[in-house]
Amino acid sequence: MTSQQEVYRFLEDRFACALACTECARVCALRASLAETEGPEDQESLRRRGITCAEVCDATCRMLSDQAAQDEARLRSEVERCRAVCLEGAHVFDADPRGEEAARACRACALACSAFLATLG
């Protein structure tokens, strides 16, 4: 049986993960729009990564915010996907001198995803 403390931790970590996903989506979308105006092909990779990361984080946040989304396997899969995309995004943004904020947001989101996954067991 799950204790009330475990339920609270699950909900707190779920909320923290959703917030981190929202922030990461915001920063990555902003980074993607900046990359559109900066020019050549090297910025195209940043733009694509920003869009992908924002979309995945947004989808994960929506799933985490859905009270009916209690299918643990599906939830785990989506959060693991988000964590992986964020870590890849952080790596790509690290290569850009103006990508520091996006890389930081991606790492924070990946950490929040990991913390939430730990509550799933």
Results as ranks from 00 to 15, higher is better:
residue 4 Q to D: 13
residue 5 Q to Y: 00
residue 8 Y to C: 03
residue 8 Y to Q: 11
residue 11 L to Y: 08
residue 20 A to V: 11
residue 22 T to Q: 12
residue 25 A to G: 04
residue 25 A to Y: 10
residue 26 R to W: 05
residue 27 V to Q: 00
residue 28 C to H: 01
residue 28 C to M: 00
residue 31 R to I: 02
residue 31 R to K: 15
residue 32 A to F: 04
residue 32 A to Q: 08
residue 34 L to M: 07
residue 36 E to R: 15
residue 37 T to L: 09
residue 40 P to V: 05
residue 40 P to Y: 14
residue 40 P to A: 11
residue 44 E to K: 03
residue 48 R to C: 03
residue 48 R to K: 07
residue 50 G to F: 00
residue 50 G to D: 01
residue 57 C to D: 05
residue 59 A to F: 10
residue 59 A to T: 11
residue 60 T to N: 12
residue 62 R to M: 12
residue 62 R to L: 03
residue 63 M to N: 02
residue 66 D to W: 10
residue 67 Q to C: 04
residue 69 A to G: 02
residue 71 D to E: 09
residue 72 E to K: 14
residue 72 E to Q: 14
residue 72 E to M: 13
residue 73 A to M: 08
residue 73 A to I: 04
residue 77 S to L: 15
residue 77 S to V: 12
residue 78 E to R: 15
residue 81 R to L: 15
residue 82 C to W: 12
residue 84 A to M: 05
residue 86 C to E: 01
residue 87 L to I: 04
residue 88 E to T: 11
residue 88 E to L: 10
residue 88 E to Y: 07
residue 89 G to Y: 00
residue 90 A to C: 10
residue 92 V to F: 06
residue 93 F to W: 15
residue 94 D to K: 06
residue 94 D to I: 01
residue 96 D to S: 12
residue 98 R to Y: 06
residue 99 G to A: 07
residue 101 E to F: 06
residue 102 A to S: 15
residue 103 A to S: 14
residue 104 R to K: 11
residue 105 A to H: 02
residue 106 C to S: 08
residue 106 C to W: 11
residue 107 R to W: 00
residue 109 C to K: 14
residue 116 F to M: 03
residue 117 L to H: 00
residue 120 L to A: 03
